[in-house]
Amino acid sequence: MTVDHVWQQVEQLLATATDRVVLVAPFIKKEVFQAALDAVPTKVGEITCVTRWSVPEVAAGVSDPEIAELAQRDGRATVRLCHNLHAKLYVADDRCLVGSANLTGKATGRVPAANIELLIETGKAHPEVERVLAAIEATAVPGTVELAEQIREQASLLQSDEDSPRVVVPGQDEQPARWLPETRNPDRLYRVYNGRHRHIGSDVLAGVIRDLTYLDIGPGLDEQAFGSAILGRLHAMPELQGLTAAGRMNLAEMQAELLAAGDLSAEQAQRAVETIAAWLRYFDDVHFVPIGPWEIRQGKELT
């Protein structure tokens, strides 16, 4: 078996296509993607590429959003994004390969020190293949050139952030023990997520990028879906379990709990509580009650 055995499998499969090709892999590097496009016969009119673009993953170098430009230049190919994608699947008409290999040099054996990977041939009509393709069809969003540029820009900002100790790759690395919102103005989150940050200072922008990195929201969402995703992350925070369970939460008690954890000063704990409150006011249906220590309560305030 040659070092590039996996690539030979992929290339030989693609060469047999007559109608449609589907390439499904979380991580895709542009050199291997171009080689895959070149392997597809010119008579094939439709090539669908399904992948995921995560800012920290792009910053870590495991995937290239620039494949959108290659797809556009090819003319037959479109890119779709599925944020929770883990499957690796390569389809040529009614035949396919399934297994562990991404479309990267190390996974396909096109570079030295290749990974040990596995691809097994099966039919496109296999129930599990049909299930995965149906799930992708139901959830994937377009991976446009414009979105690719936004992701690359945000990845570059994350790489240049001296206050970010390391690039966190969701699903690959352990997440921090505690994430607390950093951005004081939550209205900036969607603007930056959507590539509209020209008038935001560099220090503030770095904080927004760090928040978006830890939140790990998939790209391409409209503002309402984005807000719902943020709210889900907020309600999953241990610090907000009281609000989730009882419909109310005492801000002074939350500050005391943060302070008792030992990794924040009194000033930092107060700032954290104020920031969380600002996020809840912006994203959630809550109101604030100044009875003794301030409380956050679920639901609109009765007047």
Results as ranks from 00 to 15, higher is better:
Asp216Val: 01
Arg184Trp: 11
Ser202Asn: 09
Thr213Pro: 02
Asp19Tyr: 15
Cys82Tyr: 14
Ala71Asn: 07
Gly262Asp: 00
Leu251Ser: 03
Asp4Gly: 11
Arg76Pro: 02
Thr18Ser: 15
Gly143Met: 02
Glu46His: 13
Gly227Lys: 14
Arg281Val: 03
Ala266Asp: 05
Glu69Phe: 12
Ala35Gly: 09
Asn115Lys: 04
Arg184Asp: 12
Arg210Ile: 00
Gly227Val: 07
Arg281Tyr: 14
Gly61Gln: 04
Leu85Phe: 15
Arg166Ala: 05
Arg131Gly: 12
Leu234Cys: 00
Gly247Trp: 02
Ile151Phe: 04
Glu117Asp: 13
Arg52Cys: 06
Thr16Gly: 03
Met249His: 04
Val24Gln: 07
Pro176His: 03
Gln241Glu: 08
Asp222Lys: 06
Gly218Gln: 05
Ala256Ile: 00
Asp263Asn: 01
Gly109Asp: 11
Met237Arg: 04
Leu264Gln: 01
Phe288Leu: 11
Asp163Trp: 05
Lys29Leu: 07
Gln72Pro: 02
Ser164Asp: 13
Pro165Asp: 14
Ile230Asn: 08
Ile47Met: 11
Cys49Glu: 07
Tyr190Val: 03
Thr122Asp: 13
Trp179Met: 02
Val55Ile: 08
Leu243Met: 03
Asp222Cys: 08
Thr303Leu: 15
Gly292Ala: 04
Leu157Pro: 06
Leu259Gly: 00
Ser100Asp: 09
Ala225Pro: 07
Gly61Asn: 13
Gln175His: 09
Glu223Cys: 02
Ala148Val: 09
Val192Cys: 03
Leu212Lys: 05
Thr139Gln: 12
Thr275Gln: 01
Ala155Tyr: 00
Gln8Cys: 05
Val62Ala: 04
Trp53Leu: 14
Thr16Glu: 07
Glu182Thr: 02
Gly220Tyr: 08
Leu118Glu: 15
Gln255Glu: 08
Asp222Trp: 10
Pro186Gln: 05
Glu117Arg: 04
Ile116Lys: 06
Leu158Ala: 11
Gly75Tyr: 09
Ile151Gln: 10
Ala25Lys: 09
